[in-house]
Design a protein around this nucleic acid. Structure first.
Lengths: 95, 95
DNA sequence: GATACTGTTTGACGATTGTAAAACTATAAA
DNA sequence: TTTATAGTTTTACAATCGTCAAACAGTATC
């Protein structure tokens, strides 16, 4: 039940993701460490409330620029670098 | 009476500018035509209400990524490409 | 002068946003 | 089973956002 999205629409959503300080930090952090991070590990670096963090991570997931892996009661988030690079090559280097 | 802004803050504002369909079109249009455009000329390509257009152009001006020149009763808008390129090199090519 | 044109500002409106407390789900440990 | 931990969802709230009609300001033309 997905509504088809043009590349431009997705680009705009990526820019939207990067327009909030919290999300910018999350994305930047994930990119620069270069591997997945646990949510609490993220929380140590990006100090926002855990429910706010969850809210932002859901936004990023819905845009489709993060992947989530569950192991036990921990969740690990990583950037979908391929997708971002395909859509906006070179963008991540600018953060 | 300006509050000092970090590069990161300005980047986030540029991304915010690009997150709205109308502003995205304005910026993209200005970049691709490669020269300044009159507001009504812009309006022909980006069909939004004139007051909405004015609202968006003010936003872009406040972020500092456009220049405005007045001649008679016409206003001409152009992209501050140097500033954008200095802050986010290569971004404009991606639009 | 009056009129037409270009763009801004104001005001109102519904919609969306980011935040955080609280309740909740699911898993792990005791 | 009970307790602790990790993260989500719900709910509520203030703040901001994008839109448009209306009134406005400045300039050009008649």
């Amino acid at each position: 039940m997905d509504i088809k999205q043009s590349d431009t629409e997705i680009k705009q959503r990526v820019f939207f993701a990067l327009s909030d300080p919290g999300r910018y930090k999350i994305i930047s952090m994930l990119y620069h460490v270069g591997h997945e991070m646990g949510c609490n590990e993220l929380n140590q670096h990006v100090e926002i409330d855990k429910s706010t963090m969850s809210y932002h991570l859901r936004t990023l997931r819905e845009i489709g620029i993060t992947n989530t892996r569950t192991q036990g009661r921990q969740k690990y988030v990583s950037l979908n670098i391929e997708k971002i690079e395909r859509l906006l090559p070179g963008l991540l280097r600018l953060l």
